[in-house]
Design a protein around this nucleic acid. Sequence first.
RNA 1: CCGCCCUUAGCUCAGACUGGUAGAGCAGUCGACUGUAGAUCGACUUGUCCCCCGUUCAAAUCGGGGAGGGCGGACCA
Length: 345
Amino acid sequence: MDAAERATLVTRFTEEAVTEAEIASILAERDDPHAYIGYAPTGEMHIGHFTTMRKLADFIAAGVDVTVLVADLHAHLDDEKSPFELLDARSTYYEEAIRGMIEAAGADPTAVEFVRGTDYQLDEPYTLDLYRLIADTTISRAQRAGSEVVRQSENPKLGGLVYTLMQCLDVAALGADIAYGGIDQRGIYMLAREVLPGEGYDKPACVFAPLLSGLSGGKMSASDAGSKVNLTDSPDAVEEKIQGAYCPQGETEDNGVLEYLEYLVFPVFEERGESLVVERPEEYGGDSVYDDYETLEADYVSGELHPADLKPGAAAAISEVIAPVRDRLRDNPDLLAEAYPETHG
RNA sequence: CCGCCCUUAGCUCAGACUGGUAGAGCAGUCGACUGUAGAUCGACUUGUCCCCCGUUCAAAUCGGGGAGGGCGGACCA
């Protein structure tokens, strides 16, 4: 694979790359290019996480070393989303779920290095850098950078600001050339590009994944169970959620069902060599099979493919894609029970 | 350390002065209409009124105590 192909692989299905040129030169010039993505182990993981994780398979295939940071301290710093006592259990659950997603995406989970925040964020060099950054950064600058990530409230805690600065330092501390995450992370990594050189570190390149629409229209919401498919949802539960999903005929805007297909199902099916089957009554044209998203979208936009026919096929496909992760988590119920004693204990 | 304010449905809040065991909007659930969903109509549901004690026939409401949150003042060799 030449450098151009690798760059295409790294940037496909993304919202933005900062910058394309920097990514290309990193891939061409570094012997062991390195990307990282961080997750704060807070709520249960869902299909939105899976979509973002799937891309790790692209990084790996492009010859990029991948580190997944399970940012345990961040999970508490962000408005105490995770209680301090549950950080270890939730981190363990996240690690296992993420391994499952990487494997389900057709990549080797052992190719990814897992690091926890507490593995290095309490060490002296990191702490000193953090204090320097705290001293150097205005409250409003940090607030602005983290506003899409950190929970906003009328009476914000300092934790949210420290969270943002720590995430900037994480890029350098982990030695990442590329910071990868959802487009909501953009503000933080733009701050990182701005401040890291002043602390003596390289300016990281960035790759941002799109944030998928929720199933009820608008953005996916952690507090709205019906707006997303959970990794442990049974086929029936997936079917029910997709059936109830906002899915206007012929429109791609805010259409979570189509987005799931484009960013998760088809990339995974392509890797597995599978196709999406749409069963349809004869009166509407009979069954059809899709090998790629573009063809399906064209049929959908033209009206050839009706939402009522698409939904059952999409639900089955989504269910099939998450099946390995679901099985993995159900085989080890203690993971969820210990991470979320309130709901799974 | 002192003072003031806040705490009612999943969310935002009304009700408290003038005690009679609770309401609105949004959300949610269910129908109707669309070959899905949404939108639109129609219907429905939702509560330890922060906790404890007291006054009273009766307390979300009055009194006392406590918890949590917010704001301000004071202290500044």
